[in-house]
Design a binder for these strands. Sequence first.
DNA 1: CGCACAATTGATCACGATCAAAACCAGTGG
DNA 2: CCACTGGTTTTGATCGTGATCAATTGTGCG
Lengths: 214, 214
Amino acid sequence: MRLGISDNVVPLHGDFPDQRLHMTQLTPGQTLFWEGDEANQLFRIESGVVRSVNFSAEGERQVTGFFFPGDVIGLPRGHDYRYTAEAVTEVSYSTQPLKGWSEEMRCTRDLNDALFGTVQPELEAGYMRSLLLGRQGALVRMCSFLADVCARIGNGEETVLPMPQTDIAAYLAMTPETVCRTFRKLKDIGTVRIEKHDCIRILEPGRIAQLASH
Amino acid sequence: MRLGISDNVVPLHGDFPDQRLHMTQLTPGQTLFWEGDEANQLFRIESGVVRSVNFSAEGERQVTGFFFPGDVIGLPRGHDYRYTAEAVTEVSYSTQPLKGWSEEMRCTRDLNDALFGTVQPELEAGYMRSLLLGRQGALVRMCSFLADVCARIGNGEETVLPMPQTDIAAYLAMTPETVCRTFRKLKDIGTVRIEKHDCIRILEPGRIAQLASH
DNA sequence: CGCACAATTGATCACGATCAAAACCAGTGG
DNA sequence: CCACTGGTTTTGATCGTGATCAATTGTGCG
């Protein structure tokens, strides 16, 4: 099953047009934009990993998605950004004014395909996460997530997870303890290796995908 | 907090254009379209309640959203419908060819607003459901859901739930037993009344919303 | 070194799933 | 009108998983 991580491989028009205004660098933890801020530009991730986070009225933090190089994020709900975007790793990104995007869309041959390339990543991420969270069992959820990360950034062989376990926990709606324990199970099976506390390597994507299917 | 139910109050262009091809009636349980089918038309719900359902690879059924009169659904992921749409109650709907929609969008003044009116309902529903499922506690989830239904179809006073408890369970990723027991709690508090087994009336929307906030 | 934070491990507990059965309701046909 | 059927709701008893609480270890950084 596919999960809550965008797989927008084909960007809107290949790349952003020449008027690439900013090409910015961020360090882990810095934010690209804030939930509720007025949205006036889109963000194209050039390198690194970005997470989208939402806070409930009571202050509970949820990670609603992860985004990777090639993804375009920042399409508003109404006029505001629908989440806060934070750099997980070092991140570099470029921006494009939202107005320009609107014009660009108008000239696109197949509007639907174009939408598929921009609206998709963030909204689709939420949709797929809802399917993920609808499934029961910590191991199934974890493996579904890992399988999706592998499909997105893996080379078919080993894959190193780019985000900390706390983020995975916040994404999967579980506690860090449960995430850690589930990782240990996978380690005991031999499907992952845990190196240096923060660096988890997935050794057998196939086995992971199989475990994800209940 | 807002939830996984669309609140697309303002339809795309008021109504579908004159070439309203079909105006169809459905009885409970019948489907509007199937997940995976090639998408060639949009559906505008005129009356009744529709649910979107997805099946995981293992056959688990999930209700991913509820849609109400005024909502436009059927926008594809790629070229296929992303879920199966089923009538919960008696439903009447009209359709519009997807090609026509694409042209119509092209002529829209504010493309973003237009997107907000069509892409929004279904994708946004998934996004909000992911936030809902990310919260812990059966009562909190139930009340968040109920509060949202009231906001969507309620008149401010009492509201009668239009969907069976099994659907609510499938939407909230809980068992029907848990849904039922949670309803009984609310009944004991006096915030809902259960009439005739299938007909649940929400008496105190305010209290519900309060309980939803943990 | 010492600080702050993430990860790890263990012990306990509670919530919701599961299993089982009965009650309720709608629809159908005798 | 009543008996029968199928599906939903209801209620009860038990069980298991993951949350919670608490404490230790590991890691990066000033």
